[in-house]
Design a protein around this nucleic acid. Sequence first.
DNA 1: TTGTAAGCGTTATCAT
DNA 2: ATGATAACGCTTACAA
Lengths: 342, 342
Amino acid sequence: MTKTPPAKTRATGRATLAEVAARAGVGAMTASRAVNQPDKVSPELRARVAQAVAELGYVPNRAARALASARSKVIVVLVPSLSNLVFTEVLSGIQKALESDGYQILIGNTRYDDAEEEKLLGTYLQSSPDGILLSGLKHSKQVEQMLAAAHVPVVSMMDLAASPDVFSVGFSQELAGYTMTRYLLDKGRKRIGFMGAQGDERMLKRAAGYRRAMEEAGLYDPALVTMVPDPSTIALGAELLGRMLAAAPDTDAIFCCNDDLAHGAIYQCQRRAIAVPRQMAICGFNDLPASAWMNPSVTTIATPRYKVGFEAASLLRKVIDGESPPVRRIDLGFTLMARESA
Amino acid sequence: MTKTPPAKTRATGRATLAEVAARAGVGAMTASRAVNQPDKVSPELRARVAQAVAELGYVPNRAARALASARSKVIVVLVPSLSNLVFTEVLSGIQKALESDGYQILIGNTRYDDAEEEKLLGTYLQSSPDGILLSGLKHSKQVEQMLAAAHVPVVSMMDLAASPDVFSVGFSQELAGYTMTRYLLDKGRKRIGFMGAQGDERMLKRAAGYRRAMEEAGLYDPALVTMVPDPSTIALGAELLGRMLAAAPDTDAIFCCNDDLAHGAIYQCQRRAIAVPRQMAICGFNDLPASAWMNPSVTTIATPRYKVGFEAASLLRKVIDGESPPVRRIDLGFTLMARESA
DNA sequence: TTGTAAGCGTTATCAT
DNA sequence: ATGATAACGCTTACAA
């Protein structure tokens, strides 16, 4: 009683290029060219091959192609989250930039975790990617080593590299944090709190921008800063508002490191009958769709994430194709959206 | 002046299994086994191979493995959207179920578009997936054909198949729509509107459930139904509220086919000073995080999407492994979350 | 423009 | 338990 049926050497069962070639009465190479570089084959043979392909339902085998050509046409993309619209929009931009060239995108969700990133990279490196897109600039030693050993072009997204040798596409997270804080200061707020979560690189840089602005104004006070490592959610924003007020009851504004936190903080203010923005100005970061629609609408920083993805992928493609792009660091900027909440 | 440097036959530059074997002083097959089935190799040789692997920084070549073994260890997942938390959570469940077995997940975003789905499937089939996870039950003829020709196990997610032969994991969208409408009826609402967008399969089934409940109550009225093909967003919800009231000013409740629409409708009510739920009850579908936190909080249907992903992937794995699961259709149910908005 | 031969890195198969 | 050999399906390199 055998479990596996004694199929001989049926392999994949799919038609192969050799079979297509045989059916079309041409050599294997001609069939290959007819499929991949139609211009290099005479119209007549091209048609014959096309017909054989159709009749046999031929589907190219990527593994074989990759093995023979040493080009996988695979791009690995590592993002810290998929539940965050920010990164799904980055992905959209990447897809758009790459869709025309037969690239296959391998998406890895690192969950803001270094160990996970290492694991994913290790796995994905087995697919011999032609290029890699990373979120952020800071990575573990392990990851840096793997990247160096892999000899694969890498472009970093969302932030700007300090070194001009590194490929990076994004905007200055620090400057964005500074800008938002200045806005609040210019509105006359004094006791401006910073609410951060997730403890990731970008949040820390926004916090650094906040601190710089506050120190310049002579108003920096550690009691105003609430940072936790938990994933940022609406629920957490609601909770942190409570902690914030407990630590510094005279807080008159809060810069939330992202919109989820800001939404939660605002909902919580509503429940506690704290008027926003009169008693408490609240602003966020990223400009999620809800921010424009909530009541009150939310002041926030709009970030060009679709474009980040698109430009990063475009840049990567150039590097893969052997071009030496003159600009290795692309600043896409950001926009402060002044609305009702602050 | 050649563009490509005249590198001889450098291929990938990566260490190969043969090199590992040579360094360890064993045959290629032993090295292969030491890597993949350590138990089948003597401890001594296993250690020697392990050391060689470490020294050479050996990374297995998936393409070669797939080609030689006729098993790609690739699972294709097609979802209609990535910007919708529903599907990213489905993905999380899938990842969780598959992470331990070296599977690689190829994610395709069909954007609720048949042509896009065909294109993606065609591309991904080139990777010889061992299995496929699809969203929904309804697919174009093209897609059905490709699937049939590919001879690859398929599991459908999010809805329940009519035929017991089809593998499906989810819950009854129709029943969920019916249940929510009954809830509104039981609350005494008479002029209950249905607001739908995206024109996809699941929305239509929820609408069917709505209609069944309304007809049973003798209250069905086409004027109460607003359906548009546009992607559902908060902004659209706000707009559709206006259309709804224009078409049927006496509407006293709205069943929105998803939470985004519901949120938009509620925000718009707030702007128009329409009291929710007193003048207008509004409910959604999916239970996004904001629904529990908004003011008013939103009555909605909580759906087990993480579990759908997990169970679907688990089922698929069983099928791939040649088991014949007794249950081909798994109903994970749903939960009505009664909150403030309706 | 077309075809031939060789090999990409790995594993299945069958010996030993 | 270990290893030699032959594929896997395709493309590169070179000839014709």
